[in-house]
Amino acid sequence: MAQRTSKKSADPAANQETAQVVKDLHERMVRIRLFETEAGKLMEAGRLPGFLHLYVGQEAVAAGVMAALRDDDQITSTHRGHGHAVAKGVGLREMYAELYGRVTGACLGRGGSMHINDLTRGMLGANGIVGAGVPIAVGAAFAARYKGEDSVAVTFFGDGATNIGAFHEGANMAAILGLPVVFVCENNGYAEFTPQSGHMLLTDVADRAAAYGMPGVIVDGMDALAVHRAAADAVARARAGAGPMMIEAKTYRFYDHQGVKGLRHPYRSDEEVAEWKARDPIDLLEARAVADGTATRAELDEVWQRTRDEVAEAIAYAEASPLPDPADLLLNVYSG
């Protein structure tokens, strides 16, 4: 069975390091939260075309994992990919411009929300097909080893994705080839509108790791520091050549599958949503940081204000950006 992680260090030097990590995690989470809440408002105001799968509530997972990665480490993401992109360092301007379908966007306005990428940051793309990023991460890890580099690949996927073939094939492939891949399941309890109990008989997705001969751990996905510790261990293990590993982060999406509010049947109870919101990952980290003296309230507020300004500036940049020229419709269908 998968192991539940709980580690705390009593070493003062480690605590100093932890303070830096907490600030890093906090900043990444605030950036995601503000990017997403503003994107949700823009969508509800009818200012963005297409679909948005927002990441609000799951910030601790992206932040915790990405804080354990280097720029040259690669990630593959999902349809709910903004959080991963922001946490990996993709520019907010390019992201908003893409949501607006502008030519200055991360995909030149050709991809939209579900295809945001930044090769310079090791962000190998969000993905509109559930589970499809898993084998691609395996390929990225293969390339790293082939070239003699020590970068790792992390693939994010949801609980629902662990029922699709690409996940199982990718996990087995990474395992048998011994590749440096970290499998991160963001279990938010729902595959679109179907609860986990309706799409698998397992309680813990991490138990699936055993089927491929890799370790699986379960971590509180609302606890950024816990996610970070688990990710740092898995990344170090993969980087050292010990092969792939799976992390299941139990988390929750505060918004709907798509957009902000559900339009139709109430597939989640108000009580359930309220219970999870009471464990808001940013509130949890801030409360701990203030309580143990890692950060003052004023310092944390400063992060929010600075990020609000940055988000506002990025939205203004996107709105002022030119639209793509229909004459360039065929740009980049082929190379060469």
């Binding site: 898993v134 084998p135 691609i136 991460a137 390929g139 990225a140 890890a141 390339a143 070239k147 690409a166």
Partner: peptide, 10 residues
């Protein structure tokens, strides 16, 4: 998928 990821990485 392994081919796609490896190709994307050069």
């Amino acid at each position: 998928g392994l081919g796609v990821g490896a190709a994307a990485r050069g």
